[in-house]
Amino acid sequence: MQSPRTTRRIKVLVAKVGLDGHDRGAKVIARALRDAGFEVVYTGLRQTIDQVVAAAIQEDVDIIGINQHEGSHFHIARKLLQKLEESGAGDIPVVMGGSIPLVDVEPLRAMGVKEVFLPGTPIAEIVKRLEEIASERKHLAPRAKG
């Protein structure tokens, strides 16, 4: 049995929005994050922005990860960040990954996307970055200690 001292684990929502059906990458990430000790909520394919935000709120996740492969990342990022703000959940950081061109990274960051993972990013690097993002947030809004 594991140590009952409950240091809260980082909870991440992994989702895909819209008609993009390429979920292999999202599943690989979900599994890799689990193996790194994260709690991963996987909502699967073809989610609407509203569904993603509702899931993030009900699950009270630390990070939302959007995986995208069909070029609509700007549209999705804008809608998602707006909906989060409207729902009182603007403090939940959003990261994106998938087939996103290098030139789009800075504009996405400027919009408020916390991090963008380009194709070929080593999983260890993703894990490290997500841990950093989660700890920054916990610093801002401390959770009860277990």
Binding site: E39, G44, Q51, E59
Partner: peptide, 22 residues
């Protein structure tokens, strides 16, 4: 279930209930 190896987990049951999310 929590993975006994990494203590992480994948919560995938929600996947089939997402139609009710909103």
């Amino acid at each position: 279930p929590t993975s006994p190896i990494s203590s992480g987990s994948i919560m995938g049951d929600r996947l089939r209930m997402q139609e009710h999310a909103t």
